[in-house]
Each structure stands twice: as C-alpha cells, then as structure tokens.
C-alpha cells in the first residue's frame, strides 16, 4: 500500500491542474468538499490531476483563464482538450476521483445537497459529456483527503487523518 514515494511528486494546488508526462506521481492535499480528479491515458504515460472547488463556472467568468481550473465543468473541458490536442482521443482515457466530503454540517441555505456532493455530481456529468469513463471513486463522508496518483500502476492513494490510507 505504501508505494507513495517520499519525495518526488508534482504538487497540484487548489484551483489548478497539472500534467505528469514521465510517470512522476501527482499529489494534491487537503481535499474537503473539493474534488481531486485524475484523467490519464490507459496505456501511456500522460496523466493530469485537477483540484476542483466548485461545480460550475459562472457565465461571466468563462473567459477568465485564471479561474477555469476552479470549476468542474471548465476544468474537465480544458483537460480533455489538452489530451485531444496531443491526439489522444477520449476512448483512450480513464478517470478516478476522490473528495467531495462534507466536513462541516452546515446547510448553505440555498441548496439542499452539500457542495461536496454537487461537486462530485458535476465532475461525473462533465466526464460523461466528454465520454471519459470514471473507473473508481472515493467520495462523500465527512473527512478530508490527501491524494497521490501513481501513473505507473494507475493507483490513486487516499490518505486521511491519523495516517489512514487506502487505494482505488
């Protein structure tokens, strides 16, 4: 289980996505209601991890390139285009995701569903829209997650408080 390498990995910040081209591991920390999603080449080295905060980009922000990685719809769109531009079609891709927890039992007033739940749904919808199969997910609950993707094995390692760990 502990094939998470100690030192070398690419760190993905909040509201950002990054590509690993040479099987370097990708990591993002402290996902609460946020979603960490990996889209990767099923037989190949290229993998992308995104740290998404919210379901949908407001219409007046669609052109704001600084902000597109923050939202499920625009982030997934950009990542899929990134693969397509390198002649890797959707049918050669797969995805895994984790996060979408509800750490605080706060109702936002406007919505019945938690933001974490809506984030997970929005990622699924966007993946479906671009025909990228979601092979595994570990979403929901009330705990934060730090995730590491190993492109070599296509395993997504999930770490929670007190060092609790699993892989999908």
């Amino acid at each position: 289980m502990t094939s998470i390498s100690a030192g070398l990995y690419i760190r993905v910040g909040m509201s950002d996505w990054k590509a690993s081209t040479d099987k370097e591991q990708l990591r993002t920390s402290g996902l609460g209601s946020c979603i960490g999603v990996v889209i990767y080449q099923r037989s190949g080295a290229l993998a992308v991890m995104a740290h998404i905060l919210l379901p949908a980009c407001p219409e007046n922000q669609l052109e704001n390139t600084q902000l597109r990685a923050k939202f499920a719809d625009t982030s997934i769109e950009d990542i899929v285009h990134f693969f397509h531009k390198q002649n890797i079609p959707s049918r050669k891709l797969a995805a895994k995701m984790a996060g979408g927890a509800q750490m605080f039992a706060v109702s936002s007033g406007r919505e019945n569903k938690s933001i974490g739940f809506r984030n997970a749904e929005a990622v699924k919808e966007a993946l479906q829209l671009y025909s990228v199969p979601l092979l595994a997910e570990d979403t929901g609950g009330d705990k934060g997650r730090t995730i590491t993707f190993d492109p070599g094995s296509a395993n997504l390692y999930i770490r929670k408080a007190y060092g609790e760990e699993n892989a999908i």
Binding site: M14, S29, G30, L31, G32, S33, C34, M103, F104, K143, G144, R145, T146, K160, A161
Partner: peptide, 10 residues
C-alpha cells in the same frame, strides 16, 4: 476534527 491542511482549505 481533521488534518490541518484540510481544515485550512475548507
């Protein structure tokens, strides 16, 4: 109660 990084992010 959770990892510091999760609490800060959230």
């Amino acid at each position: 109660v959770d990892m510091a990084v999760s609490l800060w992010n959230e």
